[in-house]
Simulated scan of single mutants.
Amino acid sequence: MNMDVAPRFGWWQQTWRLAAAAAVGIPTWLSTGVLLQWQAAETGSWFHTGDPMVALGCLTALLWRRRFPLAVAMTVTIASTASALATGAALVALSSISTRRRPVEIGVVVLAYVTASQFAVGFYPVQSPPGSFWLQLALPALTAGIAVALGVAVGARRAEVRSLRDRAESSEREQTARAAQARALERNRIAREMHDVLAHRISLVAMQAGVLDHRSDLRAEENRVLVRGIAEGSRQALEELRDVLGVLRADPGHPEPPQPSLEGIPDLVADARTSGLDVTLTTTVTGTPSDVVGRTCYRVVQEGLTNAAKHAPGARIHITLDGTAGDQLDVSVHNSPATIKTAQPPASGFGLLGLTERVDLAGGKLSHHPTPDDGYLLTAQLPWPDPTHEKRT
Rank of each mutant, 00 (worst) to 15 (best):
S261A: 15
S261H: 09
L262G: 07
I265A: 01
L268R: 06
R273H: 01
T274F: 05
G276Q: 01
L277G: 06
L277R: 02
D278L: 09
D278I: 03
V279C: 12
V279F: 09
L281C: 14
L281P: 14
T282I: 11
T284I: 00
V285N: 10
T286E: 15
G287K: 13
P289H: 07
V292I: 15
R295P: 13
R299E: 13
V300C: 09
V300R: 06
V301M: 07
Q302V: 00
E303A: 14
L305Q: 09
L305P: 11
T306R: 08
T306W: 03
N307D: 04
K310W: 01
A312M: 12
P313A: 11
P313E: 10
A315Y: 09
R316A: 15
I317A: 04
H318W: 06
H318K: 09
I319Y: 01
T320D: 10
G323V: 08
T324Y: 02
G326W: 04
Q328F: 03
Q328T: 01
L329D: 01
S332Q: 08
H334C: 06
P337I: 08
P337G: 10
T342R: 08
A343H: 08
P345C: 03
P346A: 04
P346W: 00
P346E: 04
A347S: 10
L352R: 07
L352K: 02
L355C: 10
T356K: 00
S367I: 11
H369T: 10
P372C: 07
P372V: 06
D373P: 14
D374P: 06
G375S: 12
G375R: 06
G375Y: 05
